[in-house]
Nucleic acid binder design. Structure first.
Lengths: 268, 268
DNA sequence: CCTTGACTTTCCCCTTGCTGGAACGTGTAA
DNA sequence: TTACACGTTCCAGCAAGGGGAAAGTCAAGG
């Protein structure tokens, strides 16, 4: 049996951490002297420490690890848990890869002597009146992550109803607020035919800005539009929408073009 | 001017967060009513919110972001800070890529019905007596991250002294504890010639285990050896060392071979 | 003008995975 | 016996906010 100090050296963990693990029930010493409170560990517990470290590297919380340690026979549960973490790590990887690209863009700008937010000046806002459009659309509360699913669903419906798409897809945001898990979104595609499942998207006075770049820059576009609306003395009036002029699956992110429309009216 | 609620909607940030940012001085409202304490923001502050979000995505702490916002003219400082974060994100990417590989190994094992720690059973520990070796070596307190630098330094010295390497490089850990920032390590290569800058590495009784796999598994090897030492009634006696039989630059991580030696003697 | 309901304020506690320190008790070697 | 290294508990705090209570404020409808 090892004192907490020797065990901590063998395991490369601080005694603080070991006491904490004891406290939360993650790793209990094999024996605790009831007089002195001294904790004693067994070398065999090093294997638990190894497992803890491994799962920590897999982004498990200590709580999740405790559940794994308490059911050592539940390989199936562990397998699904690990597969789940794997997916998370993969999406983190993808995300960080995007961030790297964005950073490189910023570094290039800074080296050219531009301000880091200088790209905001490229975003021009203009007042326009949209033409009425005939669209096929579905409207649902969706999770923003499943966006692709819904858009392909819409194209399926268009094919089924023998409609002819004549423009880029768009989405209309009916939620007044930003709630990515449950957005009230209408996904629409302009079509030639009128009839069931189609509707006319009316003419509107809008502030419009065009984004050339990745969707991560969309918040900047909305910020610019809001600034413009305030400065020009308008107020927002209705559901805003985005038109996806280019297909993000075919065009590199930094050449992707998105048009953002926010319906407005004169204040007062 | 916008109330905290409308600003929070425009910026897609909770009011909680905005109050917190105010408290820590990261983003102060343009005006605070001195009677009621109500906070009022300007649409132009949306740009600060955008910058904050951007730098947060780059893994800046709020403290670091505050410094950036307070020196808006210091593009050079921002550039170095961003370049620094870039490097960190890159190493995180590399790290997560390794973790993914390790996860895949574990998933394969679990699917074959093996326990997740079953690889531990593959690590065999044996008692051997090492041969004396003549080595060229340097000993320094090094940061474990700069390991490569020191090993190439040693090879430079070997070439300079016209010595003939006759074995795989090794490192001897003179620190009794694990302190990765400042390890007392001796890096050594067996050489044919004796003389200045070389020393004889004496014969020793050791517990040895061989690792086939990435260095991330080394803790497991040490755990196994410690268990063995305890079980067989030995105690550790001196600086342990590792021999890098294969070159990690030339061999894929999971075929990399490392031998771990821990000097021991009979207890008592 | 009044009321109602939405909005805002401050305040305090909670989260995760620990780290640091204080004050005090134990173990062991000289 | 006496150092002194090691151990104990408890309390505070980090980041970056979230949850909720109690109380004050604002704007719109009647």
């Amino acid at each position: 049996m090892l004192s907490i100090g020797s065990f901590s050296k063998a395991a490369n963990i601080t005694t603080k951490t070991l006491r904490y693990y004891d406290e939360i029930g993650l790793l209990r010493p094999v024996y605790v002297d009831s007089d002195t409170g001294y904790r004693y560990y067994d070398v065999a517990q090093l294997e638990s420490v190894l497992l803890i470290g491994r799962l920590k590297a897999y982004d498990f919380s200590l709580d999740e690890i405790a559940r794994v340690l308490q059911n050592p026979r539940d390989s199936a549960g562990l397998l699904t848990a690990i597969a789940h973490k794997r997916a998370r790590i993969e999406s983190m990887l993808a995300n960080y890869a995007d961030v790297l690209k964005q950073i490189d863009g910023d570094i290039a700008n800074l080296e050219r002597g531009k301000h880091i937010m200088s790209y905001l000046e490229q975003i021009a806002v203009e007042l326009i009146t949209t033409e009425p459009m005939n669209v096929a659309s579905i409207r649902e509360k969706i999770n923003v992550k499943e966006y692709g699913k819904y858009i392909s669903g819409l194209f399926g419906k268009i094919a089924e109803d023998k409609l002819t798409p004549i423009g880029a897809p768009m989405s209309v945001y009916h939620s007044a607020e930003y709630t990515p898990e449950s957005y009230d979104v209408e996904i629409a595609v302009p079509v030639r035919e009128t009839g069931s499942g189609t509707r006319v998207f009316p003419s509107r006075l809008c502030a419009r800005a065009t984004l050339k770049g990745a969707y991560t820059e969309l918040p900047s576009v909305y910020a610019k539009i809001r600034e413009w609306i305030e400065r020009e003395g308008y107020v927002m009036a209705g559901a805003w929408f985005e038109i996806y002029t280019t297909d993000p699956a075919e065009v590199p992110p930094d050449e992707n073009i998105t048009e953002v429309y926010v319906p407005v009216e004169k204040q007062g």
